[in-house]
Write a protein that binds this DNA or RNA. Structure first.
Lengths: 155, 155
DNA sequence: GGAATTCGGACTGTTTCAGTCCTGTTTAGG
DNA sequence: CCTAAACAGGACTGAAACAGTCCGAATTCC
């Protein structure tokens, strides 16, 4: 399993929540409560997303967070690379021209192919597409994802 | 960075090495020496690949390892899933029908899209394509990959 | 029967990740 | 101007996963 970190997962949940209510902003405690996530983690994640330019923050008494752009214009590539770093499965890729074996290394070119395909796929999905119609509660979904539990009470 | 484990990387190096010399077999110490990797890790990785059916092992005095199929018929999907588990970036995918929010969860469908694209890409690359023309020394490449070092002695 | 080799699993140190907490800075409002 | 609410940045800790090691048993060739 090639897995993303939990913080990335949190980030996606938070972003979709914000995308579902574009008319208003949320502060960290509100988001934590509504998504059912630990506040410190939410706070941390929001800060990161802000630094990466995906969220606009407003300080002070009535401060909070909102999307920096319309959800339709935010791609999953942006989201994942903000939270996880550059989209690449291997490391021998991003630094171009470093690998002196390049000529005899078809491996490298093929990794690029793989990474490219992944990036393509992520590019074509916007945050808006990941967002439920509103109304629907996202917090519950998170439980499903919890580290391979799959312990759905199969009542 | 969505990264694969080091063992997976080792595995790919070992497999390409075997693919480059289809006429013979190698035992663990030989492979470790020629790839410049720690023997216990090589041994561990070879065992795993054998259990997963990618390698054929032969015990006893003149034992060793060889590819279980021609390199052209081994896809990167097989390799990665043998070493890393099922090809999927998220967990809410592989267990089908578990997620009760499926109807209101476009997120799920889009993750499937992403995972599928990745699998597609891996399916279309065979081990043979990843393998240098032979002769070329693969061991050196590994050093390049070492945990983001990129410390190529640019002399 | 002995030596070489794979097989299976237990074990340990290190790194990364998840989560917490604290201190400072900014802003609204009285 | 002063206070309270909120974000910003970073240090810190415990837990989990990973990388790597080692040993005893089973198998096979000579």
């Amino acid at each position: 399993m090639i897995r993303i970190t939990k913080q990335t997962d949190y980030g996606i949940v938070l972003l979709t929540h914000l995308a579902a209510h574009p008319e208003r902003t949320f502060n960290a405690p509100e988001l934590a409560a509504e998504a059912g996530l630990p506040l410190p983690m939410v706070s941390k994640t929001l800060k990161l997303l802000t630094r990466e330019g995906l969220l606009a923050s407003h300080r002070g008494v009535r401060g909070g967070y909102g999307l920096a752009q319309p959800a339709e214009e935010i791609t999953m590539t942006q989201v994942i690379s903000a939270l996880e770093g550059p989209i690449a499965i291997t490391e021998c890729i991003d630094v171009s021209g470093e690998c002196s074996h390049e000529r005899v290394c078809p491996t490298r070119n093929n990794w690029q192919r793989i990474n490219h395909a992944l990036k393509e796929a992520l590019d074509q999905i916007s945050l808006a597409e990941m967002t439920p119609p509103s109304g629907a509660d996202l917090g519950a979904r998170l439980v499903q994802l919890g580290r391979g539990t799959a312990a759905a009470p199969a009542a």
